[in-house]
Nucleic acid binder design. Structure first.
Lengths: 321, 321
DNA sequence: CCCCTTATAGTCGAATGGATTATAAACGGG
DNA sequence: CCCGTTTATAATCCATTCGACTATAAGGGG
């Protein structure tokens, strides 16, 4: 290890020996007819990704290049999710791989090209996350008993109650409220408990029959869970939903999209009030007739508000405004 | 570029040619007597950092190792901030450096050792961010006129009004409210406008006399601004302040710490009500006599609430609870 | 004992947010 | 053409929150 700050400051000291590989990986999201989808390649078990190379001007442009090359899909809005490192155990000599993950919001419009890519529903991978039609039976029938068994499996009493409490908070057991933002914690809990195939695969464990949801390669499903959690949290304080909407839409379509992301149903009048008082949209003057009932007004997003970052309201009890 | 998903999926195809260097860099924060401080090395112009190497078990442990080695300070709470890449123009052949930045919250307790490290006030680097004693004169006297001049400098009319609007939102000009969370946008705006020395240094520009705040090497001040913004946002919905507090404290000390971070004064009765109704603290039974007036009750953080992640209240108008 | 300082408790009204009800406008079948 | 069905849109009620302010308590010092 280098000891002197001067030498380590720009890290050129022993650069050659400390090289790593950087991989860019994308969670590309769209919502179609109230169903949230993620862009996958391979057999639907893989997120678009590729190494960060010299020809990329930036991390973002590298990511865009890889996704467009692998799926034919150009990206609009993207934001960084998380960076993590894993010791790569694949080849003989040790090699570090750093994965820089991004969340992208888009619409399923462009032809997916001839590639091996496909839009898959989020809830194929996380069937316990969709509460729009009530709490999935999977939770009470499979996950809850297995989580409790996993908790009971712990050696120490403290660990047992700790595990039970974590499971109860994450999955809303024991009359606790369901919190849709805890998607990542839930996946990690299921991983720890060996209830997703990735865990049993990584550990070469046994219970590969009792796993929930479609598996993905490496830690791609964990990255997907990270994107899901981030998006569910972000729609509450930033107008990012509109990245997923067509240029013109009805308020019910907007509501269905938010519901698809949150995995929960929303109170209709209150949702409309919320949207209107924030002045996020404006009427186009047109109406949509294919609603089945009274025609709905069509709206479009007011792009002006994107700049008014001041929407982030304070939560501190400040003194004299 | 690699074309086939199969080959690019784990990126081993041409790994040797795509190696980069990964650097870990830390924004270590503490608050002492109402003054927020950041741990620096060198001449106070450098954040602790070092390359991510094979002996590090994870990114986090690598960061802890570097900070402890360079400053003698062990870290408690840390969270990832952002990852960015810059083409390194320092040496002849092109080489990519990826910087993975972290935010660490701690207390200034441990001896700083014999190292060249020092605690410096945040507001040395961002003098326009401290609004506890009112809006700093710097803004009206220096920044506002120079920002307006920069806006007027633009060729196109649209760009001019765009720049004026950005400046007004970021700095609360024209009767707009001050938003302490926009610390990063403000720094980036000043950089664009050439009002921080880093910009004129990078561009070899001229106006190096009219710069604001203490400079740091490379993009360290930008990283510091990222940490400041993240922390100012996070204290509003997660009980992270307590990482900066001693085990036992009065409610006014707690308030002063939050005020130091936010750079704004807080309404005292309402702050107390907020803390109490969230049940974040409990009385120790002791009182502090060195308040100057009536003795204050001493409190301690209720560590239980750390697990109750459910504090993240919903903002969506959900249907039938 | 008065006065200064700080701590702590309580109040009042505006605004917010959840739940519910009422009215409007299309369609289709008798 | 009426009428029930469906969905859109508007309005209301009420509990809770939140900002601003006032009042009381308890120490120290002259």
């Amino acid at each position: 290890m280098e000891d002197r700050p001067k030498a380590t400051r720009n890290g050129r000291a022993a650069a050659k020996a400390k090289q790593v590989e950087a991989e860019l990986i994308a969670v590309v999201v769209s919502v179609n007819d109230g169903e949230p989808a993620v862009l996958t390649i391979g057999q639907g078990d893989c997120l678009p990704s590729g190494p960060f190379a010299l020809e990329h001007r930036s991390l973002q442009s590298g990511l865009r290049a890889w996704v467009e090359k692998q799926t034919g899909h150009p990206l609009g809005y993207i934001e960084q999710l998380y960076t993590f490192a894993d010791a790569d155990r694949a080849d003989g000599r040790q090699q570090r791989v750093i994965s820089i993950s991004y969340l992208a919001l888009t619409r399923k419009e462009h032809a997916t090209g001839a590639s091996t890519c496909a839009w898959r529903s989020w809830y194929d991978y996380f069937p316990w996350e969709d509460h729009r039609l009530g709490t999935p039976k999977l939770i009470a029938d499979v996950l809850k008993p297995r989580l409790l068994a996993w908790a009971a499996d712990a050696k120490q009493t403290a660990t047992r109650s700790e595990r039970r409490r974590r499971a109860a908070i994450a999955f809303g057991l024991d009359e606790r409220p369901w919190n849709e933002e805890l998607a990542l914690q839930r996946y990690e809990l299921l991983y720890e408990a060996g209830l997703v195939a990735e865990a049993t695969r990584d550990e070469r464990s046994i219970a590969s029959d009792s796993t929930a949801g479609t598996t993905m390669v490496a830690d791609h499903r964990r990255i997907l869970a990270t994107g899901l959690a981030r998006l569910r949290s972000k729609i509450k304080y930033r107008p990012v939903v509109f990245e997923l909407m067509p240029p013109v839409f009805t308020l019910l379509q907007l509501q269905r999209t938010v519901e698809a992301l949150a995995g929960r149903l929303i109170n209709k009048p209150n949702f409309r009030r919320l949207i209107e008082q924030q002045e996020l949209v404006e009427e186009t003057g047109e109406t949509s007739l294919d609603t089945g009932g009274r025609p709905a007004k069509l709206y479009q997003f007011r792009h002006v508000v994107l700049d008014e970052t001041a929407v982030a309201g304070t939560k501190l009890p400040l003194a004299r405004g």
